[in-house]
């Protein structure tokens, strides 16, 4: 039952991602990406990472997609010259890169499965992990407190960068 749910959510996410990168209209791409975020959030719920699922919907499907759509509106993409996109110089190379990555990593994954690096059904049944906000908060503000504080500096830098880049008149 859980596996079936995970396959459904995962297939939704994968199909949405493929559609997102192949749509000509950027608005359609963004909408398919929202679909992918929701699919992944469903997958996280099935994996019992409840808080991650909630934050996935809030931050990705909420904040980041709004940022994307805001910029798409600012750019006035209905004008013709922004919609037309030149074909890549060598599309076969991009496809080859993706397929090659999938092949190499897939073989590595299959090897790892053959070596028994992943727990089997009996071992998985004993796994216990609390994915609640309390457990994540205790780890975040305990073990990873320094990393959390450094993250605030990163965000501050991103804010400065974004403001300077968009405010200054470039000539």
């Amino acid at each position: 039952m859980t596996t079936a749910l995970f396959v459904i959510f995962g297939a939704t996410a994968l199909a949405s991602a493929l559609l997102a990168v192949t749509r000509k209209n950027p608005v359609a791409s963004a909408m398919w990406l929202v679909m992918m975020f929701f699919g992944l959030a469903g997958g996280y719920v099935v994996l019992e990472a409840y808080f991650v699922a909630a934050v996935q919907v809030l931050v990705y499907a909420g904040a980041i997609m709004v940022l994307f759509l805001f910029v798409i509106m600012l750019l006035d993409l209905r004008s013709e010259h922004l919609m037309e996109e030149e074909a890549p110089r060598m599309p076969i190379l991009g496809v080859a890169a993706a397929v090659l990555f999938l092949a190499v990593s897939g073989i590595a994954l299959l090897n790892a499965v053959d070596d028994g690096m992943f727990p089997d059904a009996a071992a998985r049944a004993t796994l216990e992990l609390d994915g609640s906000a309390r457990a994540i908060g205790e780890s975040l503000f305990g073990t990873w407190l320094l990393a959390f504080e450094v993250t605030s500096v990163l965000l501050l830098g991103a804010i400065f960068g974004a403001v300077i880049l968009t405010k200054r008149r470039l000539t």
């Binding site: 039952m1 596996t3 995962g10 019992e48 727990p119 049944a125």
Partner: peptide, 8 residues
């Protein structure tokens, strides 16, 4: 428990 295979 968790029924989903990790490799998936």
């Amino acid at each position: 428990g968790l029924a989903i295979p990790i490799e998936w």
